[in-house]
């Protein structure tokens, strides 16, 4: 069971290398006539190395244990939250989204104390806004 993580990741990198070499690199790299170093030289070499080394990892795995799947699922939740935050910022701006995002993160972590919630949700975003826009004269996302 301990070798499964390496077998999975090795196969993934082998597949990635092969897909890059045979499909993505030829499709998404423009070719040019002349020159000393073709634009696809480095990507192709890296893709082949990925495929070969990935196969090697899959064939000769180490005893690496992957992280607890429950923790990885929780991480997925936070990633979803951040994706939603970035999307909302593109529409509404940092000023409106940052307090809500901070509240959501702190709430998911399990923070319920009003003092810390107030600091994280009101004081920190307000301080960032003041420093960036008022003191430094730069735009927020």
């Amino acid at each position: 069971m301990g070798t499964m993580a390496d077998r999975i990741s090795g196969l993934f990198f082998m597949a990635l290398g092969l897909v890059m070499y045979f499909w993505i690199n030829p499709t998404y790299i423009e070719t040019v006539d002349g020159g000393n170093l073709s634009p696809d030289s480095l990507p192709n070499i890296c893709s082949l190395i990925l495929a070969v080394a990935g196969a090697f990892v899959a064939i000769k795995p180490t005893n690496h244990h992957v992280r607890n799947p429950v923790l990885m699922a929780k991480t997925g939740l936070y990633v979803a939250l951040l994706v939603a935050g970035i999307w909302a910022m593109s529409w509404l701006g940092f000023e409106y989204v940052a307090p809500v995002l901070a509240l959501a993160i702190m709430w998911f972590v399990g923070e319920r104390r009003l003092l810390w919630l107030g600091l994280g949700v009101v004081v920190v975003p307000a301080a960032i806004w003041f420093i960036v826009t008022q003191l430094l004269g730069r735009a927020l996302p």
């Binding site: 940092f94 901070a102 972590v109 399990g110 994280g120 920190v124 960032i128």
Partner: peptide, 14 residues
């Protein structure tokens, strides 16, 4: 950690 990491995330965004 709740306030440190939520603040760090906002600072990284900015």
């Amino acid at each position: 950690e709740s306030i440190i990491f939520s603040s760090a995330l906002l600072l990284c965004f900015v």
